[in-house]
Amino acid sequence: MAEAAIMASDGLWRKLRSEAQRAAAADPVFGKALAGAILAHDDFAAALADLIGQRLGRGADEHARFASFARDAFRGQPDLIETASRDLQSIALRDPAIAELLPPWLHYKGYVALQAFRVSHWLWHGGQVDAALLFQNEASNVLQVSIHPAASVGAGVYLDHATGIVIGANVVIGDDVTILQNVSIGRRSELPTRSPRIGRGVYIGGGATILGDIAIGDFAKIGADTLLTSDVPAGCTAVGNPARLTNCPEPASVA
C-alpha cells in the first residue's frame, strides 16, 4: 500500500462524513441510518466505538457496554484509531468493487470484527481477560470471525468476505495482509508452543489452513484451500495439499 494514499484519521473522518452527507441527501430514508452511524458523532473514535457496540451488542444495554469498552480502549491507546483508519482505507484500495470509504464502514463485517479484535487485544494486555474473551466470543457468534485476543495483527489488514475466519492465540500477522473467507491460522496440536508468523503484504486465499511454528515471508501468496505446515520464503506462492512452492523469486522448496 502506497504511503501517499494513507490519510490520517482526521482526514479520513472528514471524507467519511462527506460521503455520508452526499448519500443522505440522495436518499432521505437511508440518510436516517447514516445520521446515527456517522453524522451524529463528533469524531472517528466516537463513531467507531458506536459501530462496534451496535454490531456486537444485542439490545441497548449490550450496545452501550461494548461501545464503552471500545471508548476506553481508544482513550487508553490512541494509535488504535490510526490503525483503524489504515484498515478502512486498505479495503478501498484493494477491493475492486468499491472506490469509497462509506460502503465498507456500513456493510463489511470483516472491518468491524477486526476493530473488535483490536479492542479485545487492548483489554487482554490490560489484564481484563474476561472482557477480552467476551469480545472474541461475540465477534465469533455475530460476525463469524474469531481472533484470539493474544494474537498480534498489524495495520492495513483486510478480511475479505470475513466468514469462517479463525486466528489463534499468539499468531503474528504483519501489515497490509489480505485474508479471505474460511481461513484457519493457529498451532498444531502436537506443537503447542508456537504459532504462525505472517509477514507484510501476504495474501491468503479462501479456505487456506496455516498451522504450526512456521514463518510466511513478506508478499508471499497462499492459494485457496492450501494446507500449509512449513515456511514460505518471501515472494513465493504456496498451493495445494500438502503445499508446494511456485513463482519464487529464487529457487526454494517446502521442507
Rank of each mutant, 00 (worst) to 15 (best):
A208E: 04
L191H: 10
R86M: 09
V142E: 07
M7R: 14
R197V: 14
D213H: 02
T246W: 13
V157S: 07
I167P: 00
L12E: 07
I81P: 00
G206M: 04
Q136D: 09
A238S: 04
Q77P: 05
A73L: 05
S9V: 04
R55V: 11
G207P: 02
N247R: 13
S152F: 05
S140W: 06
V183Y: 01
S140L: 01
M7G: 02
T226P: 06
I173E: 00
P78K: 08
H161I: 06
T246I: 15
A24F: 02
L134W: 02
E19L: 13
F117Y: 14
N141M: 03
A49H: 01
P233V: 09
I222T: 04
A25M: 11
A67T: 06
P192R: 10
R55P: 07
P103D: 01
T163I: 10
F74H: 01
E19R: 08
I173N: 00
A24M: 05
E250G: 11
A33N: 09
T237P: 07
G217D: 05
A35V: 02
R94K: 15
V172E: 10
P149F: 00
L88T: 01
G164I: 04
L106I: 15
A5M: 11
F66K: 03
A132F: 03
F44H: 02
E250H: 14
L114N: 03
I52R: 00
A132N: 02
R187V: 03
Q144G: 12
Q136K: 01
S68A: 15
P78R: 12
L51A: 12
N241G: 07
Y111N: 07
D43Y: 10
I81H: 02
A84E: 07
M1P: 03
D72Q: 15
A113H: 05
W124K: 03
D175C: 05
D231F: 11
L102C: 10
Q144D: 07
S68P: 01
R200K: 15
A35Q: 13
V119G: 00
A45V: 09
I222P: 01
D42M: 07
Q144F: 02
R200E: 13
A234C: 11
D79I: 10
L80S: 04
A92F: 05
D50P: 05
A4E: 15
G205P: 02
G36V: 08
I91W: 05
A151V: 04
R17K: 12
V119C: 06
D175R: 08
I210A: 07
Q144E: 13
D218I: 07
D176G: 03
T178K: 12
L12N: 01
L106V: 15
G240N: 06
Q144H: 14
R58S: 09
R244L: 09
Q77H: 12
G59W: 13
S9C: 14
Q144C: 08
M1K: 08
A26T: 05
D160H: 13
P233Y: 08
A169S: 14
D225L: 15
V119W: 00
L12Q: 04
D213N: 14
Q136Y: 05
A33W: 13
Q77V: 08
A64T: 07
E19H: 13
A67D: 12
R58E: 13
D50S: 12
V112S: 07
Q77L: 10
Q136M: 11
C248P: 02
A162E: 06
N241P: 08
